[in-house]
Structures are given as C-alpha cells and as structure tokens.
Design a protein around this nucleic acid. Structure first.
Ligand SMILES: [Mn+2]
Ligand SMILES: [Mn+2]
Ligand SMILES: [Mn+2]
Ligand SMILES: [Mn+2]
Lengths: 141, 141
DNA sequence: TGCAAAATTTAGCCGCGGCTATATTGTCTG
DNA sequence: CAGACAATATAGCCGCGGCTAAATTTTGCA
C-alpha cells in the first residue's frame, strides 16, 4: 500500500463529495417517482398536482419539470400535462423499488412504520446498489 | 379517523418537506463533526485543513464557517483558527455517534464496510432519534 | 360563442453551497 | 526588520430549489 500517512481521514473528501453528488439527484428522483404515481393513478400529471404532492408552489414545479426535460427524463408541451420518457419511467421504477426495500429493512430492524416512511424519504437517495443488494439478501432470510 | 379521501398520498408533501428541511442541516453537521475531529487531532482547526477534508476550496470553507458562527455553533477571529461553542461540540458528538451507529447497523445487516461508510455519509442526516434508538436496540441483541 | 375563472408560464427575488480571481493579513526567514 | 510567501478573506460568478406577483393561455359555462 502506498498509503502511509492517512489515518482514515484521506478518504473523507471523497465521501463528502460523493454524498453531495448523490444529493444533487435527490429532488429529481422524487419528482420522477411522483409523476409516475400521478400518471398511474389519474392518467395524467398536471403541474398543479405535481406541485401539491411535492408540497411546493407551481412555479417551483414548473422549473423542476424543466430540469427533468433537460435531463431527458420527461417531456411536455406548454400548458399540457407532463409525461416520462423511457429513461424517466425506468428511473421511477428503480426509485420506487429502492424506497420500498429501504422501508422494509428499517421495519425489519425495529423502526416503527411511520418513522421508517419519514426517514426513508431522505435516506433512500444515498442507498447504493451494493447496499440495496445486501438489504434484499437480509430481507429474504 | 377523519381521513377518508387520502389514499396515502396526502402525507407525501409533509414527507418531502421534512426531507428538505433535514437536508438543509446536513452540510452544517458534517462541518461541525469534522472541525471537532481536527481540534482533537491537531489542537486547532484551520480554514485550509477544513477545506481540504471537506473536499472544497477555502472560500467555500470560509463561508460555511460563517454560517456556523451565525448559527451559534462555532467562533473564530479573523486569520485565526476555528473553535466550536458548547452547542457545536455537543452537536459534533451527537453526529459522530449517529454516524457510527448507522455504519454498525449497515454492516450488521450485510453491507460491506467500505460501502457502509460511503452510503452512511449521506444517509446519517436523515436518521431520526426514533430510528436511532431502534438501531441501538437491534445492535444490542 | 364570448367571457370569466382556472391553469400554466414567466419574471424576478432569495439563500445555499459550490467555484475562480484578487486583495489583505500573518509569519518566517535572510 | 524587510520582504517573500503562506494563509485567509473578499468579491463576484454560477446553478439549484425555494418563493411571490404578474402575464398568458386554456377551459368551461351562461
Ligand atoms: Mn425521497
Ligand atoms: Mn421516496
Ligand atoms: Mn454526512
Ligand atoms: Mn458522517
């Protein structure tokens, strides 16, 4: 190892910037999943409904949707509803499954259901594929 | 129950805004814990070291420290090192303990140690006191 | 079918948390 | 005890993700 003078603190910067990078995607993930819910429940996802479910004003929702479109996750025409691209729909499914698995794990470990649901909404975005796989293995036992 | 027409989606806005609120504190928590580390390891926390460990430029660290001071978590005089207030030191200890407990839980559940450390850096800030208590109970078994 | 109300977009503001470039202050050394 | 250099601070920029207020478009109904 060429790592003599690093008493564990050398990898800290990488951990922090990784967490920041993940965080940058978090809001987008929640929007995509929620738009997917709306499409399934009501056949369309309107700005007013998106805003209401996110707990945000409509201009904020409009801007978020603009970012989703820029990222290739959603499409929409002015004054019309929002739809997901293939990529957006796939992301929604992944995010939804990850959320459920995390909640299940938290409950399995003794966290009350309502608390698990609340905490998971923030935690979920930082759960890597590797951790998720471990969760599934644990839950399967 | 006075909750007829809410098929679970009514509490979504609260969950999202809760997660946003928690996220707003996350960066501050990491800075405070890390400054506490520096003070313990080297007796002082200088801007250059804070910046280096956070993986950030010094102006960014300077602004973060300014926010900590505004929040009553740190004190410093110009061109001198940074110190924590009682409140800041207490927060650092709480954040450190929570981080360790979360990593322990992840490992106990089958997540590889390096992955646990990486994921925990982001997840930790969303772990409520109730969830933390559950984690400790689980780990005690 | 025309118009009022509702929905959406646009404009413009804010703080956070990043950045680079530059100014200022402290420190160490010849 | 100068200066050079290192450390810190300041200025000014950016995008994100919030907000309010105002303009615009769509829609529903009298
Ligand atoms: Mn979420
Ligand atoms: Mn979720
Ligand atoms: Mn952290
Ligand atoms: Mn941590």
């Amino acid at each position: 190892m060429s790592n003599p003078a690093s008493p564990e603190s050398a990898n800290l910067p990488a951990r922090f910037s990784h967490a920041r990078h993940v965080q940058a995607k978090a809001v987008m993930e929640d929007y995509v999943e929620m738009i997917s819910d709306l499409l399934a429940e009501m056949g369309e996802a309107r700005i007013a409904d998106i805003a209401q479910r996110m707990g945000v004003t409509h201009p904020t929702a409009t801007k978020a949707v603009a970012r989703l479109k820029t990222a290739g996750l959603a499409v929409s025409r002015p004054y019309r509803g929002v739809f997901l691209t293939e990529e957006g729909a796939a992301l929604a499914e992944k995010v939804r499954a990850r959320h459920r698995t995390l909640v299940d794990l938290l409950i399995a470990v003794g966290v009350p259901a309502e608390v698990a649901e609340l905490d998971a909404e923030g935690m979920e975005h930082h759960v890597s594929d590797a951790a998720l796989a471990a969760f599934r293995t644990y839950l399967a036992k």
